[in-house]
Amino acid sequence: MNPVFRWFHQLGSPPTFDRFAARWAPWCHLLGLLLLAVGGWLAFQVPADYQQGDSFRILYIHVPSAWMSLLVFALMAFYAAIALVWRIKLCEILAMACAPIGAAFTVITLATGSIWGKPMWGTWWDWDPRLTTELILLFLYLGVIGLYGAIEDRRSAARAAGLLAIVGVALLPVIRYSVVWWNSLHQGQTIRIFGESSMDSSMLAPLVVMVVATKLWFLGSLLARARADNLRRESGKDWVVKLAQVRP
């Protein structure tokens, strides 16, 4: 068997995944934290915007969090689909571990957007298409978390919540194109991965660092949360009993 496939196959085993997550989650968190610190420092080194003043610095946490809120939902649906089709337990665990992290990034997006909106738009909140669809995304995350918690059998719960995640993916393009399809108080697209951004290049470096940092942070959180759920599901097994005795 191909060594990469064999490694993935072995990672599906709960004790192997536990060792993997216990080893790599702290490194992902540490690297993410270092990059967040660097990105945060860089964010305050670039000159203030000529129109928005210092308030534009909120962009460096608002935009990466908004991107994460969408990416994590897509990843959650991807894991959920794999779990539904191939009944891979680890994918159920990973899908469900995505939900609280994605919800956290969505809360950051909504809160920082609201704080940014007050000085720029003169209001904390507006029922604008982008803001409203992002709020619906938060409700979807909460729905997935709630559904997973409401059903006693973990595997049935993961399947039901996973189905909600897959259906919810339809919202992602609506959020992405909401500023294009409707008249919106929210600004249009300024940063493009392919093509020229309308944002000045001097302002881009901290954003790139923060985008990478949030990805690493997410990986750390995903591994840690999946490890916790894995331990909960496997709590009756010998390897967990041994682990509990070794690590009080």
């Binding site: 992290i101 331990l231 709590s235």
Partner: peptide
């Protein structure tokens, strides 16, 4: 501050869950 608080929450919760699960099993 909101960003830092939410990330701290995101870090602390799984650590507590892992610790409490292992304690429960022990």
């Amino acid at each position: 501050a909101v960003f830092v608080l939410v990330l701290v929450w995101d870090f602390v919760i799984p650590q507590l869950q892992i610790r409490s699960e292992l304690r429960r099993v022990r």
